[in-house]
Amino acid sequence: MIATLLKLFWLFAILSMLAFGGGAGVMPDIQRAAVETYHWMTPQEFLGMFAISRAAPGPGSLIVLLIGQKAAGLPGAAVSFVAMFLPSCLLVHALARFWHRAGQAAWREVVERALAPVAIGLTFASGLALMRATESELPQYAITIVGAAVFAFTRIGPLYMLAAGASAMLLARLIA
């Protein structure tokens, strides 16, 4: 039990520090560790957990709770949560303090303006990477593209969009 908790802690502490550009990038590494290296679950169980963490409210990286829960019960979930979020939160907290102290400094204004196109570019990059990692069927691509257009150019509420996406996917499966 203790050995499993240590493995969970080590795994997620390291992966969170490697997750540049967001948690989605290390999803394949999480899968490899949980399924192939440690045999905590089958590939199907991992996919189910991925779907739950995506569909549930909150950050998708909460999948670490499910993997910890499966490997070592509630203590496993708690250890995984701390390992995944504590190091990166401390880092970003320190960065935010530094940023705040810079106040109205001229360099901060320049850096802020330089970061805006970077943020937008990374938003597209992570969306495209996630599409490649999680989508394989034509209806999914279609729903994603229509969803992007609707979100960008209308004021339709996201909850309606999610309901429409679920319905469209069910319809596509019934017809196929």
């Binding site: 189910g48 779907a51 739950i52 995506r54 569909a55 943020a119 937008i120 938003t123 597209f124 992570s126 969306g127 495209l128 996630l130 599409m131 999680t134 989508e135 209806p139 999914q140 691509y141 729903i143 994603t144 593209i145 229509v146 969803g147 992007a148 257009a149 609707v150 979100f151 960008a152 150019f153 996201p158 969009m161 999610l162 429409a164 996406g165 679920a166 319905s167 469209a168 996917m169 069910l170 499966r173």
Partner: peptide, 22 residues
Amino acid sequence: SVALAGMGAVALGMNLGLGVRL
């Protein structure tokens, strides 16, 4: 799981749409 896949696809679209809007 089919419904979840549809919701996930929309959520991805929302992220890309945010990029377009920004």
